[in-house]
Computed example of a mutant assay.
Amino acid sequence: MAKAGVWDAVGQVDSGGTLCTGTLIASDIVLTAAHCLYDADGTPISAEQVTFRAGYSGGVSVADVSVASWLPAPGYRDEGEIQPGAEAIRSDVALLLLAEPMARDTVVPIALHPGLLRTNEVRTVSYSKGIDADLSPPMPCRLLHRFADGVMEFDCTMHPGASGAPVLAERGGRLSILSVISAVATDENGLARSYGASLPAHVATLRSRLTRAQVSENDDKGARRIGAGERGSAGARFVRP
């Protein structure tokens, strides 16, 4: 039996019209950005419409698995096409529960990073520039800032389809997931910036709540609405990649 590829845990999150990137973090759980699971008007997409295509490359995936249910991080509220502010970014995290687990000899999950880095060097991989695009090569970039609200700023250049892509940092000789790409912007000098949330608290909460009996449609109560063009704590006007 062929050994599972190192990047096979990263795949396309296909919601039948929206393409994002997701990463297997357990045999039956995929991590992505919450906004990937909402229509353009901010309506939640039903789990039945979502498929995770693990290790997609050259038009072929290691496995296509349907999604049984999904949950966004507490406090997340989607405003559709309205540009997100920092408050939306800090909770722009979702877990997908797959309809069936993947065998470890097929796809090896990627662990979460606890957050403390020895260096600011990170990497990203993503699907972008069209539904038939392959996974990008690992792209080195840097963590630039951590904001008090849990938002991280990177100098990674991202493209459409990169939403939900893992930001990876080394830990114990292996890469683990520090954040997921939520939004992109340019700074005052026109340099590319990308943003994502701190993950450990969100993922711990979601894993404790996500069961096969749960559905995801309206689990976004209590969040403040983000106005169009509003600036968040990271000081940029964001768009979704």
Rank of each mutant, 00 (worst) to 15 (best):
E48S: 14
V50S: 10
V50G: 05
T51Y: 01
F52C: 03
F52K: 03
R53H: 13
R53T: 02
G55S: 10
Y56D: 03
Y56H: 14
Y56I: 07
S57K: 15
S57L: 03
G58D: 14
G58I: 01
G59L: 04
G59W: 04
V62R: 14
A63V: 01
A63H: 07
A63F: 08
D64A: 09
D64T: 11
V65P: 12
V65F: 11
S69Q: 10
W70I: 01
W70V: 03
W70T: 07
L71P: 13
L71H: 06
L71Y: 11
P72T: 07
P72D: 03
P72Y: 02
P74K: 05
P74Y: 08
P74H: 09
P74M: 06
G75P: 13
Y76K: 00
Y76D: 02
Y76H: 11
R77S: 08
R77H: 12
D78H: 12
D78Q: 09
D78C: 11
E79T: 01
E79Y: 07
E79V: 01
E79Q: 14
E79K: 03
G80E: 10
G80T: 13
E81L: 14
I82V: 12
Q83P: 06
Q83T: 05
Q83L: 09
P84W: 10
P84H: 10
P84L: 05
G85V: 00
G85D: 15
A86D: 15
E87Q: 14
E87N: 11
E87M: 03
A88E: 05
A88H: 04
R90C: 09
S91E: 06
S91V: 14
